[in-house]
Design a protein around this nucleic acid. Structure first.
Lengths: 201, 201
DNA sequence: GTTGTTTTATACCGATAGGTTACTTACTCA
DNA sequence: TGAGTAAGTAACCTATCGGTATAAAACAAC
């Protein structure tokens, strides 16, 4: 009888099986997010259609909507994943001791990893007229976060006013680099450019 | 008789009247281009629909197509007009004598005129995956032109290698500034930022 | 095997995209 | 005035947009 086999559980409590009921999904959520991210990154939000997404991910529309709710929500999730993927780079700005060397390391890494695909966050900023508040706030917050971290590092070496201006300059270099990437400017040239910039520090 | 009144013309040559035949247009081509430009500038190519364009310009679809051929062609023309409108700024880089002061003047003007709408060229770069060759080449050419002019000015004060890197840095600031504009960063901050940058020169 | 649950495939929805057709209107020319 | 021409209007075209309804398929529990 069932009662015997579950007698170790309190009344009303059921076993929670790892395997869920119903037909199993035949996709990995993280993979799908990754693929969607690549697509949005390449084409932007407006120009990426549901057909593009279903084609790239292998999922059909219904499954996409079951999993993510809407194109917009999927975009927000993808944008988030993109920002997460940049965390390693950002962490260069949290190394002890704080100071301008962290900023130099960060900028050199950004130049080194610059891509011909540009940068999803930069793209989103320019598309922001189409996006809902959530995505707008996301990019706003991401950039402010970066700017703040750079400011914190530069505050060690400069007075507040100068640190602020320099932080804006250094943080906004991600936009320059993203655009140069899209323009297929050689990575070597971008690195030389950054070399010149960090003379300021 | 006609012959008498046109006797001063050679045979087979007709008077070319300023007024053209048929119903006159009730729009100014330049105005329409301007309005289209503003719209593309605000929303980007992909997100600007024909309805948006007809609404903003007052022209109906047929007239738009008669005049400009297609959405893509209109965009190319608008992008061109945008670049033309930036010529005054660019001319700061052709003042005699050539030298870094020209670049400083240019950058300060770019900062001064930075807009919350960003920059149509920068937006187009990030949308370039959607655009046909013509628009791509246009932005490519525009940027190379700017970069070349800045290089020419900096070559007066620096050796070739340094001038090249500095030129890339200074020219790509238009992308940073455009993005900061879209992020609603205060113009005053942008100007302070540029103040810091030109210390390099 | 039956029942319940979840995912999948397919077909469909109204709305809108970019673009065109057919016709009317407004002008020049003679 | 009437013929010729260019521009404007509105209805229409097909394709695709983001999003859904329905039902078959694949699993767990029993």
């Amino acid at each position: 009888m069932r009662k015997k086999s579950r007698s170790f559980l309190p009344n009303g409590v059921k076993l929670c099986y790892i395997k869920h009921m119903g037909r199993p999904k035949n996709f990995e959520r993280e993979d799908v997010i990754q693929q969607a991210m690549e697509l949005f990154w390449l084409k932007g939000y407006a120009a990426t259609s549901l057909s593009d997404l279903t084609e790239a991910t292998g999922l059909n529309k219904k499954s996409l909507y079951n999993e993510f709710g809407s194109k917009e929500e999927l975009f927000n999730i993808a944008l988030n994943a993109y920002n997460q993927s940049k965390l390693r780079q950002i962490e260069l700005l949290t190394e002890e001791p704080f100071g301008k060397q962290n900023v130099i390391n960060y900028l050199e890494d950004v130049a080194q990893t610059s891509s011909k695909k540009g940068c999803l966050m930069t793209l989103s900023i320019h598309e922001s007229e189409l996006l809902e508040k959530e995505a707008k706030l996301d990019v706003q917050k991401s950039f402010k976060g970066l700017q703040g971290l750079i400011f914190k590092n530069l505050s060690v070496d400069y007075d507040k006013k100068k640190a602020k201006s320099l932080a804006l300059l250094m943080s906004s270099m991600i936009f320059s680099i993203a655009s140069l990437g899209k323009l297929k400017v050689d990575k070597k040239e971008i690195k030389s450019m950054i070399k010149e910039l960090i003379i300021l520090l």
